[in-house]
Structures are given as structure tokens and as C-alpha cells.
Design a binder for these strands. Structure first.
Length: 446
RNA sequence: CGGAGUGUGGCGCAGCCUGGUAGCGCACCUGCUUCGGGAGCAGGGGGUCGCAGGUUCGAAUCCUGCCACUCCGACCA
């Protein structure tokens, strides 16, 4: 993308309403624009990041065997009456009447809908297990939206729902999602820690929240350092090997890790030696539940088991706050100059910065880099604006492009361009072809 | 939902108390000089002062009502 043709409305000054760094930076970098309280438009840069996050979630969900669907945002009140949640949910649910005065609602979640779908399409234990998911906008009419997309009323969420014949099957499905989440967040460059959670309004007993550590997190967290030091790495997964999955889950859940909701100081001290106790703050980016037949019973989602008996489906639900992640990643990765995107979710992987637009040699060198990198599959931002160098650097750092290729007449005289890392600040002078090869190695591209 | 505030050009703000030609910085446009980490000078464009009533010769300013948004707290993917 040539910056001169892009739409990137950055702002120099800090918007007064933004209290936390991710909100400030998202506004300044032209990623989002507030439409009304807790509701945002995603501008090109923000939209790009959101799509990259979504792509990773889709990829990992499907790797773990979940099947993509897409359910509507507007739902009928009837289903919610059957589950008993129409009244329970309270004013947080946005209720709408259509022209026939039928009661509708903008979905805050989709358990009822998916259970209805499962009830209609799954008849036998032979059809199980199944995990379906979608990534769809949700609306929860928060009393006090704040922190930009971290706590909006409208938000994009991945929600998956598993269906099994019995508790053992449901546990296996739960564990698949658990492991899938470890992989998903790690791919995004995040350290997400599973923590024992309260089940909240959805109910259930087997439940974990995934939190990333950040100073501005909304929850206080208490954990054993050994959990924070775990990393998933490249290990091979057999998604059908229930025992192996259970082993991984055990590895991540054996140590103490809780939020302030479930934290117990006495247990913490008893289980964790003092030098391993970590007290920090975290942002919830995922939440998984097992809830058994809570919805399948009232919604009559029942199947026949091998013994010819009709039994209610065993279910769980599994959420990832996709739009929240965009903010959470920034909370976890930024500096005074702006955002520092992990490569996997960066809106652009590399920026070509032309220090002297209009200089024939510089222009030619930049055009060459831009077309070659693009041809090699890179997402490139070419800053071809007629701006001063300082302004280009500032923009590039603000929007967090992980790598810069700096091209100017001075370097070209010596046959070099500068390759600079946004994260470390390290700079290296290389011949243009060498710089491209360096990037190709880094990103695993030819 | 309790408490506290704010609405004036795209953004950040002053002006309001004490009514009398709507202003500043950034951004934007034009020109010149600059140009390797958010340039300088000169000129220029853009605002029904949140909305509706009221008081007044005259309202951004005073009064009444409404709307929107923000912050603190309780609550939440």
C-alpha cells in the first residue's frame, strides 16, 4: 500500500477522553473512531488488525476441529424465554421491537441459537462430538462503557459451542479448546495465562479465563511464576488424543493462577513459595465454560445414546474477545512513540520509508523494494508522501510497523538501505537485496 | 445506577463570571525557503458556539427544559 493513497487519519495530540494507552494509541494511529458511547467504527488500519486477529482465531479454531458458522446478530426473544434468560439478563441486553411489535434482541451471546441449531441437526451419538463457532458482533448495553474497544458495548467475539454425548466427551472438547487457546494467543505474540474463574451468569463448574498480563488490566491476578514461564512452542498436537490434551491442560492448571474473583490468600501462600508468587494485573481475552445440559435441557436438544436412551447434549461455550484483543495487544506492547505490533497481527509487516521523495534514485530504489517485497508476499506500506523524514518516522513508529526499510540518497551512494526493528530499535545497513532476504528469512518466506 | 463534569471549525482549548464584530495552537490550502527523527516565514479557507424555548435593542455568554459525551464508583467478553 502506498501511504499517499491510503486513508490513515493520524493525530498528533492526545485525545482528552482516552484514559488508557491502547485507547489513546488507537485513536492517534487512526485505527478507530467513536460512533457513540462504547461503539466504534474501525478505520482501515484498525480493520486490518482486526482481520489479522480474526484470521489467526479462525485458523486455530479449525485446526482444533471447530466448524465455522455464522449466526445473526438479531435474535428472537422466544428462544431466550425458553432458556429462562430473557428475564435474567436484565437491562444489559438490548431489546428491540420490530414493526409487528415482536420482541427481538441484539444478541449478547448465542447459546440459545446454537443449541436450537444443534437440536435440529444432531439426532444421534453417532453425530458427536461437534464444535461449532462463529466470529460475530455482540452487543451488551454496559452501564459504563470505557477504555475504547477494551470495554465497548458493541464488540466482536469468537464464540464456540461444543456438543457431546457425555461428560467425558465434553471434557475432551473443553480441553481441545483450552489447548487451542494457548496456541492462539501465543501466535499473536501474547502471554495468556489460564486462570480458574467464576462461572458468572452463564453458569457451570469447569471454567477458565485467559488473561494477558498488563499494568492497565482490569483484574488483579495472583499466580505461580512457573505458570507464566510456560510456553507452548512448536509441539505437535494430536487433537484426538484425549489423554495427551488432558496432560497439557494439567500442566497449565496445576499451579496457582487466579483473578481477584476467586483468589484466596491462604491457599496462595500455602501452595506457592514466596519467591514464585506473582501479583499483577491482567486483561481477560478469553473465557471457556463447561455447562453440561444447562441449555440443551430447556431447549430440548436431545439425542439417542448407544443404549437407545434419549439424553440431553453436554455442552460448553468458548469465547475470545476479538475486538478487545486489538486493544489488549497494544496494552501489552507499546512504548512512548506508539504501538509495537507483534509481527503476526501487524497491519503492515514492513514499511519502506523514502527519505527524499522526488529524488530520482531514492524513488527508484523505493519502487523497486516495494514491488519486490509485495511480490514476495509481504504486506508493505510504502511511505511515498512528500513529507520530511522525521514525520515519516514518527508516523511509522506510531502505527507500529515492525520493520522499517529506510531509503535515502546518502545510503544509496554506498549501495545500502537501513533495516530497522521497531521493537528493539536496532538498525543495520544492508544492500537492498540482502535486506529483503533478511526479512524473508525472518518471516519464513521465499 | 449513584456522584462529578463537559459540549465553541477535523483535534486540543480560550472566551461565559461582568451580554455588544467568535479567537488561539495543531491539522488543512497556496507560495517561498528548507529537507537523514513530528521545519520556518508569509498569505488563506473552514464554525447555525449540542438542541429547543425564554429574557433582552442585542445571547456562545443570563434563565428553563431536553439531548449527547466523558470521568470516579458499584457491575461486566
Amino acid at each position: 500500500m502506498r501511504l499517499s493513497r491510503y486513508f490513515l487519519p493520524i493525530i498528533k495530540e492526545t485525545p482528552s477522553e482516552a484514559q488508557i494507552v491502547s485507547h489513546r494509541l488507537m485513536l492517534r494511529a487512526g485505527m478507530i473512531r467513536q460512533a457513540s458511547a462504547g461503539i466504534y467504527s474501525w478505520l482501515p488500519l484498525g480493520c486490518k488488525v482486526l482481520r489479522k486477529i480474526e484470521a489467526i482465531v479462525h485458523d486455530e479454531q479449525q485446526a482444533a476441529g471447530a466448524i465455522p458458522v455464522l449466526m445473526p446478530t438479531i435474535q428472537s426473544a422466544d428462544l431466550w424465554r425458553q432458556s429462562g434468560r430473557y428475564d435474567d439478563y436484565g437491562p444489559e441486553m438490548l431489546r428491540i421491537n420490530d414493526r409487528h411489535d415482536r420482541e427481538m434482541l441484539y444478541g449478547p451471546t448465542n447459546e440459545e441459537q446454537i443449541t436450537e441449531i444443534a437440536a435440529a441437526g444432531i439426532r444421534s451419538y453417532r453425530d458427536l462430538p461437534k464444535t461449532l463457532y462463529h466470529i460475530q458482533w455482540k452487543f451488551r448495553d454496559e452501564v459504563r462503557p470505557r477504555f475504547g474497544v477494551m470495554r465497548g458495548r458493541e464488540f466482536l467475539m469468537k464464540d464456540a459451542y461444543s456438543f457431546d454425548i457425555d461428560k467425558a466427551g465434553a471434557t475432551a472438547s473443553y480441553n481441545r479448546m483450552f489447548v487451542s487457546y494457548l496456541r492462539t494467543f501465543e501466535r499473536m505474540g501474547l502471554k495468556a495465562i489460564p486462570m480458574k474463574a467464576d462461572s458468572g451468569p452463564i453458569g457451570g463448574d469447569m471454567t477458565h479465563e485467559f488473561l494477558i498480563l498488563a499494568e492497565t488490566g482490569e483484574s488483579a491476578v495472583f499466580l505461580d511464576r512457573t505458570i507464566a514461564d510456560l510456553s507452548f512452542g512448536d509441539r505437535e498436537i494430536d487433537w484426538d488424543d484425549a489423554a495427551a490434551l488432558q496432560g497439557i491442560v494439567d500442566q497449565w492448571t496445576n499451579g496457582y493462577a487466579r483473578t481477584d474473583e476467586t483468589h484466596d490468600e491462604t491457599t496462595f501462600h500455602a501452595e506457592v513459595p514466596e519467591d514464585r508468587r506473582v501479583t499483577a494485573r491482567g486483561i481477560e481475552v478469553g473465557h471457556i465454560f463447561y455447562f453440561g445440559s444447562k441449555y440443551s435441557e430447556p431447549l430440548n436438544a436431545k439425542v439417542m445414546n448407544p443404549d437407545g436412551e434419549t439424553v440431553a447434549l453436554e455442552s460448553g461455550s468458548y469465547g475470545i474477545g476479538v475486538s478487545r484483543l486489538a486493544g489488549a495487544i497494544i496494552e501489552a506492547s507499546h512504548d512512548d512513540n506508539g504501538i509495537i505490533w507483534p509481527e503476526a497481527v501487524a497491519p503492515f509487516e514492513v514499511a519502506v520509508i523514502n527519505l527524499k521523495q522526488g529524488d530520482a534514485e531514492a524513488d527508484a530504489a523505493c519502487e523497486d523494494l516495494y514491488s519486490k517485497l509485495t511480490a514476495r508476499g509481504f504486506d508493505v506500506l510504502y511511505d511515498d508522501r512528500d513529507e520530511r523524514a522525521g514525520s515519516k518516522f514518527a508516523t511509522c513508529d506510531l502505527i507500529g510497523v515492525p520493520w522499517k526499510l529506510v531509503v535515502g540518497p546518502r545510503g544509496l551512494k554506498n549501495g545500502v538501505v537501513e533495516l530497522a526493528s521497531r521493537r528493539t530499535g536496532e538498525k543495520e545497513e544492508l544492500a537492498p537485496d540482502d535486506a529483503m532476504n533478511r526479512l524473508a528469512d525472518r518471516f519464513g518466506r521465499a
